[in-house]
Amino acid sequence: MKAGCHQQQNVEAVLFIINVCLFGGYQLTELQVCHVCNGTVQNGTAIGQLCSASAGLLDGRCCLGRRENPSDADYVLGLDLSNCSLNYVDRLQEAATATMIDLSLNPLVSLDNLLFEGFIQLRHLILPAHLVCPGGNASWDKVEVKGESLYCEGQKDICNQTGHLSLTCPENSLCDPDGPGLYECNCVGDFHGYKCRRAGQFPIIQVLGPLGASTVLVSILLWVTQRRKVKSA
């Protein structure tokens, strides 16, 4: 865990570090994001309700869902980082599976555009009221301000929208949602590689085999009929 701690430091100065080093090592599948700040998910909050409804496991600021297979790690269902005195948030990737995230009551200045990249299941996001919902209001079914909090509800599928900016992915690729207001262009079907320009696998054996065999054959044939008859001067 110590090594992991140093690695973290090398990558970037994160506010999680102290928490990780203090609370880390309790369990193998430690999720750092759940221990960004002290306390646990409160029963009365939306995330508390979600957790009890879906029989999730509370762990620090997280509600964890269990996988079918016991050897698989738990995954984050909900994340409650409200009232954590966070000035900024720059890493949430561990919570990419969450359906509900609460960042309210924090002195956040702004959020990075790509912070929620890959958060395709996120349906409820609570932010301080002075922020805007990621991807803009058009990326959410319902946006409303209640007290000091901004509620972004129901993420829209940006790829299936009409009337919105037309998202034409390049040839051989299709649009896939990739979080609020974000999308990916992924290669379709057999296509792969840079710019999805390649299709299928090159049949290397079927090419090399006959080519090598015929080269050897023709070489032997010609050697016997031609060069063997060379008269050395």
Binding site: L211, T215, V218, S219, L222, W223, R227
Partner: peptide
């Protein structure tokens, strides 16, 4: 390359 090999063994 194969052509080069064949030339080497077959050309007078």
């Amino acid at each position: 390359f194969a052509g080069g090999v064949v030339v080497f063994f077959g050309l007078l």
